[in-house]
Amino acid sequence: MDFWENKRVWIIGASSGIGEGLVRCLIKKNAWVVVSARRKDRLEQLRNESPSAQLTLLPMDVEDHGSIGEKTKDAWSHFGGLDVVFLNAGIAVRDRSIETSLDLEKKLFDINFWGLVAVAKALLSLKSPDSLLHLAVTSSLSGKYGVPKLAAYAASKHALHGYFDSLRAETSSNLRIHLVIPGFVRTDIAVTGWKGDGTANGKMQNAL
């Protein structure tokens, strides 16, 4: 049997890019999937493409840390628990550090780092010690290396590595933590991300 068949999966950051691709893939593999993102309209488009009881919509903004506990309980209870959670939400700032405001960098960390940490903490409060849970954390090559014009984004990904590597060392083997480091992927993260002044970047990032 395929690993994903009948697995209970929550994908956070499911409205585009890697998350959107995961939704389509896992529905085909007969997983039961809860999808979350800020953009409810994009989630509804996914459901219209795959009208199935396997797919459940749970709009959520990971920047709203106060709502994460209840949203996590909703995702957990929908299928009576979760087997795999994809911590995939994120935003990018593409600009020189000197041109990027500190407030914008803090906002990025609230989404890319603290939002995902808040979800992980909420999940651990629900998980029983003997149940198996996989956390797949979407990082980046810039989580390993500094990249020009992506200082805050790279820092948030470095922070995810430090936090989740440490969490892995603290917990039992029934919590499996996977740090995913994709290379260049053609997604909208650069298009929908910000310039240093907070306006939309509006263009695709080149690999070179």
Rank of each mutant, 00 (worst) to 15 (best):
F3P: 10
R8V: 07
I11N: 12
A14D: 05
A14L: 06
S16A: 06
S16P: 08
G17T: 04
I18N: 03
G19Y: 14
G19F: 06
V23D: 14
R24H: 12
C25L: 12
I27P: 11
N30V: 01
W32M: 06
V33F: 12
V33M: 04
V34Q: 02
V34F: 07
V34N: 15
V34Y: 06
V34G: 04
A37T: 06
K40P: 00
D41T: 09
L46H: 07
R47F: 14
N48P: 10
S50G: 04
P51V: 09
P51W: 08
S52E: 13
S52C: 07
L55H: 13
L55Y: 15
L57Q: 12
L58F: 12
L58I: 05
E63D: 11
G66R: 03
G69V: 09
G69M: 03
E70F: 13
E70M: 01
E70D: 14
K71G: 12
D74C: 04
W76Q: 11
S77Y: 06
S77L: 09
G81L: 03
V85M: 14
F86V: 01
F86M: 05
F86P: 13
L87M: 01
N88E: 03
A89K: 04
G90T: 02
G90R: 00
G90Y: 03
I91Y: 07
V93N: 06
R94I: 14
R96Y: 09
I98C: 13
E99L: 12
S101H: 04
L102T: 15
L102G: 01
W114G: 01
W114D: 03
G115V: 14
G115W: 05
A118G: 07
A120Q: 01
K121Y: 12
K121D: 11
L123E: 12
L124T: 12
L124A: 07
L124H: 10
S125Y: 08
L126W: 15
P129E: 10
S131H: 10
L132S: 14
L133Q: 00
L133G: 05
H134S: 09
H134I: 01
L135Y: 08
A136F: 09
V137Y: 00
V137R: 14
T138Y: 02
S139D: 00
S142N: 11
K144P: 02
G146Y: 06
G146V: 02
P148T: 04
P148C: 07
K149P: 01
Y153P: 05
A154I: 00
A155R: 02
A155I: 06
A155P: 05
H158R: 03
L160I: 02
H161S: 15
H161D: 11
Y163A: 07
F164C: 08
S166F: 06
S166D: 12
L167D: 10
R168S: 15
R168A: 15
A169N: 05
T171P: 13
S172W: 13
S172V: 01
S172D: 10
S173F: 08
S173A: 13
S173N: 14
L175F: 13
R176L: 15
R176W: 03
I177R: 00
L179C: 07
L179F: 15
V180I: 14
V180M: 13
V180E: 00
I181K: 01
I181R: 09
V185C: 12
T187L: 10
A190R: 00
T192H: 11
T192M: 00
G193E: 11
D197R: 08
D197L: 05
G198F: 10
G198W: 15
G202L: 06
M204S: 07
M204W: 02
Q205P: 10
N206T: 15
A207I: 15
L208K: 11
